[in-house]
Every structure is written in structure tokens, then in C-alpha cells.
Write a protein that binds this DNA or RNA. Structure first.
Lengths: 224, 224
DNA sequence: GCAATGCTTCGGCTACCATCGAAGCATGAA
DNA sequence: TTCATGCTTCGATGGTAGCCGAAGCATTGC
């Protein structure tokens, strides 16, 4: 039974961690769920047998991701039922407001601001998006060079795409991943616009006062 | 956690039994799940606490129904995931082919033929459907009078609607309930087109050779 | 009133399964 | 090769939860 797979707390935590669309290693998932690797291994093989997640070997790591959007959809549905009965799970998404606003997703910007940024890039025709695929336009290249001193040759990588849409768990929409997403986040840090929170293990990204303004000037949507 | 509620086999069987939209008593659900009433009582209170089902007292019976369509939707989603991985539950719907084809849902026709009938009524503009609501058109009234000798005044009832969409569990689509659904089923029986299976407790509806033809002439979709 | 039916609560039993320690493979690095 | 890292398999343990028998309420019918 599928539901019993999702029903176990440890497995639910793993699946929740995977809801952001990114693949995570077995150890990372073990840590997310707060269990030992050997226990996690058992859970992961069950989830895989149930068709909820798919593995991808890479070196001595084993990355897991949700099988597809259908799985994510059902998980969201379950979370929805849980939410309305007040049976909200502890980990059903970032509860910390700061975390919802801006956080690190692997190495790029996620949260409200991350989603906002991709929205604006798309609206200004700096990128073109078709489903998960994102392409940088000529205008986009000029924009990056002018405002962020990012040139296309900085973005080439043997295996990683320049642009990629990454599902934002708190916003339920896409933000920008890939080498460009990483480069932009790095640039924000270099420009002292933003910095990762000092708390060890925290994924919160704090914007400075001026950083917030500059960011809004480039990517703001007029909301605030 | 909601999923763990659905995960238990006994509870899943109960929920499955409720998927046809009808309310069932605690004892009936116990029988469906193959457990004793006292065990069922425990499960039912958990499902109720989780907001998946709602009770309705009536005399010394206690009827339970799914809370709403959202719950049914999530359950279908889970069943969908289960189906595609071959992890199909034993009881994920009627396994008996005859039961899938035509059966009694309370007092009206369900299964493949039931769904087919409503489809055709809709296609011929004999009824209009908007979500759960179904309305008989003027054409529909003429059709019923002409072919089945059913007049509108036979269908009025203080509390029961004339037409109602009822989710068909085996087909995952709607069939026709309400007083009209009941009247049509009754007419089929009177015309010796079909009859409930003689086996005690069976919900199978057997069509006669001529009944099948007549039914197909009125409601066939050309599939066979 | 008494009996019968339907459902719930209580207590104890049992079975399942999540968990972790220890050991075993695989991959990559030196 | 040898070592380290990441993950899996094995075995044993323990806690949880499903399960039923017995008893207790509630409602209906006589």
C-alpha cells in the first residue's frame, strides 16, 4: 500500500525534503529524517519499490528524487488534507518566515525572492522557459554582463546546465537553478547584497538594506 | 499523519467501500474490512479525528461518509499511484468482472454500464450536468416517457433529488443516482432487461440477452 | 419494565516493523 | 595495493498499534 509508505514519519520527512524538486543523497535524507544511514537505506529501498522515488548513481553517492509530478501532486494533496484538519505536519514546508522569504537551495536562491527573480527574468524576456527547461536570451546575456558582471563563459560546466527550473517548496513555483542561478547567488554575496545566515546549518539568506534595494531595482515586481 | 490513517489495510478497505459516495454503517464497514465491530469502531474514530470521514447518527445506527470530494480526490490519487506501479491493492475496486460491468449502487445502476448510460444521456442533451448537479432537460423528459414510460411526477420525493451524480468507484467516473436513477433501474427490472444476481448479498446486476440489446440501443456508445 | 440491536470502551495479547550496531560491498583517492 | 567514504545487508531489540473477548452504554421495540 502506497499510503503506508508515506505514513511513516521518517519516510514522510524524506519525501518532504524531496518536495523542492532537487535530488538528495541517501545520507542527506537520513539526516533530514533524523535517522541513521542504515535505517534510511531500508526506507529508501521501500520508497523506490513503491515507485515514489527514483535513484541516480553518481560516484559513490546515490541521489534520490521524486519520480514525477504525479507523486508530488499526491503528496501535496495529502498535505492539504492534513493542513485543513489542523493536523499540519511539523515539516510541511519552511515555517520560519525568513526561510520562506529567501534561502539557499543547494547553491542558489530560493523562496519568495527566488521565485520573484525568475518571474521578472521571464517577464523581461531575459530568459525563455518551457517547462523545466530555461534558456538565456541575448538580452539576458547583456543584462547579466551589465548589471552583475556575469559573462556566459563563466557559466559553462561539463554536466550542469546553465539554467534550470527548480520547484520552490514554500512558494510552490519555480525559481532559477543551474550554474547561472549559482553564479547570481555568488555575485549577490560578493556585492554584499546578501549573505547566508551565520547560524550553522541554517539555509536562511539575509539581504542587507542596500542589497534589498538593488535587488528590487533589478528584479522587483512592485509588490513592496 | 493523514497518510498513515489511509495506510492501514483495514482502514483502506473502509475508505474504499465509502468511495461510491454512499454512507455506510459502522457494522457494514466492519464487514467490508473483515474485522470485528469493536476494532472497526477504533478505526472509525481515528478516521473521523483525521477529518477523512464524517458520522451521521440515525437511530441506533451510525452512518459514515467521506468528508468531501477533496478526500475522495486524494484517495483516487493514491490509488492511481498504486495502480501504475503494479502495487494495485487487492480491494482497489470490484475485482469481479461482472461487478465492474453492472452492479447495484444502493438502488441504481453502477459500473461500466451505469457510467455509459449517464455519458449517453449527457451526449444526447437529455440531462445537463454541472459537477455533482444533474438536471433533466425537456428532451430528457420526453425521452423517458417515450422509451421507459417514466413520467416526472413519479420522481418527486421530499428529500431526495431527481438526479444526482454518483462517483463510480470501478470506473472512476460518474453514474446516475437520485430518484431517476432508481426509477430507471426499477424499470429495467420490470422490463426483464436486467435483474439482481440471486446470490445473497451480491450486488451484481445481470442483463438478459434482449435487455442488453435494448439498453445498447438507447444508451450504447458503440463500443460493442 | 425487559430484551435485542448497534456501537463503544477496556484490557491483554500478538505481530509487525522501525531502529540501530556490526559487518559487508562498492567506489574513489592516495 | 591500501585506506576512506558512502551505502547496503544482517541480526537482534523494542515499541507501537491492530486485534479480539468481555463488558458497558445507548437506542429501539415489545
Amino acid at each position: 500500500m502506497i499510503a503506508s509508505l508515506v505514513g511513516d514519519p521518517a519516510r514522510a520527512n524524506m519525501l518532504t525534503a524531496l518536495m523542492n524538486g532537487r535530488a538528495l543523497t541517501a545520507s542527506e535524507l537520513a539526516q533530514e529524517a533524523g535517522i541513521t544511514p542504515q535505517t534510511a537505506s531500508s526506507h529508501l529501498s521501500k520508497l523506490e519499490a513503491g515507485g515514489l522515488i527514483e535513484p541516480e548513481k553518481q560516484g559513490r553517492h546515490r541521489y534520490y528524487r521524486l519520480t514525477d509530478d504525479d507523486v508530488a501532486g499526491v503528496l501535496e494533496g495529502l498535505a492539504g488534507l492534513a493542513a485543513r484538519t489542523g493536523h499540519m505536519r511539523v515539516r510541511t514546508g519552511p515555517k520560519d518566515p525568513a526561510l520562506r522569504r529567501a534561502r539557499i537551495c543547494y547553491d542558489h536562491l530560493a523562496g519568495d525572492l527566488g521565485v520573484q527573480m525568475l518571474d521578472t527574468l521571464r517577464a523581461k524576456n531575459l530568459v525563455k522557459q518551457r517547462k523545466q527547461e530555461i534558456e538565456l536570451t541575448a538580452d539576458g546575456e547583456r543584462f547579466l554582463a551589465k548589471h552583475l558582471q556575469i559573462s556566459p563563459d563563466m557559466l559553462t560546466h561539463p554536466r550542469r546546465p546553465v539554467c534550470k527550473a527548480c520547484l520552490d517548496w514554500s512558494e510552490r513555483r519555480h525559481h532559477l537553478a543551474g550554474t547561472l542561478g549559482a553564479a547570481m547567488m555568488q555575485r549577490f554575496a560578493e556585492l554584499k547584497w546578501a549573505a547566508r545566515d551565520a547560524t550553522p546549518g541554517s539555509r536562511v539568506v539575509n539581504f542587507t538594506r542596500t542589497g534589498e534595494k538593488q535587488f528590487a531595482a533589478l528584479f522587483g515586481d512592485g509588490r513592496d
